[in-house]
Simulated assay, not measured.
Amino acid sequence: MLLYVDVQFASPYALSAFVALQEKGLPFTIETLDLAAGDQQRPDFARLSISARVPTLVDGDFALSESSAIAEYLDEAHPGPVLYPAAPRARARARQVQAWLRSDFLPLRQERSTEVIFYGPTPQPLSAAAAHSAARLFAAAGELLAHGDDHLCGDAWCIADVDLALMLNRLLLNGDAVPDALARYATRQWQRPSVQSWVARERPARAVTT
């Protein structure tokens, strides 16, 4: 299998797909695209990906983009450790969290891009809109984790734990205040070997704007 990701290894969605492959124990290679240079718009890649986005997974003669679709495909098509809970309600909750994190919190995602995680923090304080997003994130995550177990869906890890931890780490690893229980959860999830394998990737220097 082949996984297309961004050359900076900073895309949260590429991270999610990478972790899914690692957790399933599936062999794969990586090809990087320079999104700033528009590599994703190359006709060959756009045809392959359909959406002209990373991550895109190629499995034989089948190509698929969108990280949550990739995770679901891998779980259903390949043996190995599961990425989603088996119980229908827990599985639905994990999918809900993934969809929610990908479609909400725009001010927070803009002001705390994943570059603060992989390249270093920003001193810029949160705007009122981003602070409101953070407060909503903390309230909802607190409810989701109120059961007191180590993972989102109870005592077993699932792929949605990576997505939730990354959203929290946009703030935590930038030095912004995060409630203690959520900080412990995000830190614990971030130490998972599959995640650390992504964190340890060699990255090009951050582009300097003038």
Rank of each mutant, 00 (worst) to 15 (best):
S103A: 15
D61L: 05
P107V: 13
P107H: 11
V162N: 10
A99F: 06
I50F: 14
D150Q: 11
A181R: 03
I117R: 02
C153Q: 04
P43T: 07
A46G: 07
R206Q: 14
A205R: 06
D149M: 03
T187F: 02
P125V: 08
V82Q: 13
G175H: 05
R109C: 10
Q8V: 02
A134Q: 07
Q191V: 04
A186H: 04
G148P: 03
A90N: 12
D34G: 01
Y13R: 08
G142C: 05
L152G: 06
F138S: 13
T187S: 14
D149Y: 03
A36G: 06
A160G: 11
P179E: 10
Q41E: 01
R112N: 04
Q98P: 00
S103C: 11
W198I: 04
F18Q: 09
E115W: 10
R102E: 15
F62A: 12
R102S: 15
S133A: 15
N169F: 00
R136I: 12
P27Y: 11
T32H: 00
L108I: 08
V19Y: 09
A36K: 02
P79D: 15
E111C: 05
D75T: 03
E76C: 06
A156H: 10
R112P: 07
A131T: 10
V199I: 14
A87C: 11
A181S: 13
A69V: 12
Y185I: 07
A146L: 01
Y84D: 09
W190S: 14
P88G: 12
I159Q: 04
P121N: 11
P204K: 04
R47I: 00
R192L: 04
R47K: 13
A146T: 02
D44I: 01
Q96W: 13
Q8H: 13
R109G: 09
A17K: 04
